[in-house]
Structure formats: C-alpha cells, structure tokens
Amino acid sequence: MNDMSTEGYTTADGRKIGGVLMEMKNITLRFGGVVAIKDISFDIREGEIRAIIGPNGAGKSSMLNVISGFYVPQEGEVWFRGYRRGPMRPYQVARLGIARTFQNIALFEGMSVLDNIMTGRLNHMKSGMLAQALWWGKAEREESENREQVEKIIDFLEIQNIRKTPVGRLPYGLKKRVELARALAAEPKLLLLDEPMAGMNVEEKEDMSRFILDVNDEFGTTIALIEHDMGVVMDLSDRVVVMDYGKKIGDGTPDEVRRNQDVIDAYLGVAHD
C-alpha cells in the first residue's frame, strides 16, 4: 500500500477510491486502568469499504464507538472531511453525516418499519413544531418528500411488504435489514456497520453482502465494518485494519493482511517456547 498517493487509488476490480474521508491519529482509549485502544492510527478513504477485524476483545467495537462519538479517546485526534473533530455527543456526530448500525439490533420496537426508517431522515427535516402541529405548509411537504426518499431505500433493500409492520414482530434477519435501511436513510457520508452479519445463515449473509456492495456501488457511500466471518471480510473489503489487544497489528489489502505473520499468529495462536 506504500505506492498509494494522497489522491487515492484504484482497486483490483477497477473502482476509483478518493482522498481521505476520515483519519484516526494515535487514538488511545482507557477505561480506568484498562487500555482498550492503544495508539492506533488509520484512515478511511472516500468510496472505500474498510474492514476492522480482530479476535474477541481486540477493541474493534470500542473503535467504532470512538468514531460515532460514544467514547471520547483520552489521546489522539479524529479528523473528518479535513477538519479535526473535537469531543462531540453522538447526535452531533450523526449530523456530520456518520450513521451506524449496532451489533445487537437497536431499532425502535414500538414503531412501524416505515417510521423507523423515517427517523433516519430526522436530520433532513427542518420544519418547526408549530408547522408540524398544524400539519401545514412546509411540514406536510417535507413529510412527503422524505417519504419518497425512504421509499427508494425500501425498494432498494426489498422490504416493501413489511412497510407498515411493527418492528417488534419481525424476524432477526429482517430487523438487521431495517436497521441498515434506517442508517441509509440518513444519506451518510460514512456508514459504520457493527457486525452486520452476526447470527445469520449463509443465505442471509449473501443477501447482506450484496446489499453492502450495492450501497457502496450505487450511492458511493463509504463503509467501515466490523465482521468476524473472514470469508465475507476478505471478499467485501478494499482494505483491512487488524487489531489485537487494542493494538494495530496489520493494515492493508485483504491479500496483504492474509500473508501478515502477526495476523496469522493472532488468529491461529503462536507456540510459546
């Protein structure tokens, strides 16, 4: 990866990857005496699918939580779209254009699928409380316009038939898809997926992989994902960060990572003699 210029690069399958969208510089995150992330730096480029992998407890989810604003690192800098990001609340991060899904689904169970996805568009809806109370003018127009966007995503993810079903009644695989839809509805610059395929069977994984590739392809969304299924990660991602015990032990294309001795040791274990 050393030949990669600041202007971006071209992937093996011919997609153009742009400049740096997000850069993490020397991030260190501690919980009391426990060091969850230790001096990690990496970048995410525009249009890229970037994977973060590592054994259990490596600090992957903590990293995602740093990006989405749940945790504020003690040391290091987070740069997004050319600006340094100060400590922010998660809702402020969301307004910058970063959306995410959760490892254990975090949908609004009491609301319909449609309403859940509509919540993803909250940051695109600006009408005041009075206009909404009277359901008049801007509020009504905005509702229809945003509904149109949401319907596009519903079509895209093929969930038309469950539009009005309360989320609480849906099976697991569909909930995962609805959560992806909600994140997509925000039209994010950067989409974070925390184990999008956890607990799925092969068929559902194939579907989800297809959706992730399509999202990247059609909307040009930059995606950072955590995943345990190595086959999926190696097939989907353009570049991979490997973490172990809070440290970065590898970074590069899937092929490079696969050949990296540190990575092999971390996953297969190494004999101590």
Partner: peptide, 27 residues
C-alpha cells in the same frame, strides 16, 4: 399531528431506545 410527524418520531425514538435515538441525530 405532532405525534405522527418528525417530533413524534423523535419522542418515540427516545421512548423505545434512547441510545439509538441519539445515534441517528436526536438531541
């Protein structure tokens, strides 16, 4: 009108899961 619009969805989002509500941009 309030409960079927944006503000109602914000309220329900807070009710159902406040962490997820914050991550999608609800203050």
């Amino acid at each position: 009108n309030l409960t079927r619009g944006t503000i109602g969805r914000k309220w329900m989002a807070i009710r159902d899961m406040d962490i997820a509500a914050e991550i999608i941009g609800v203050n």
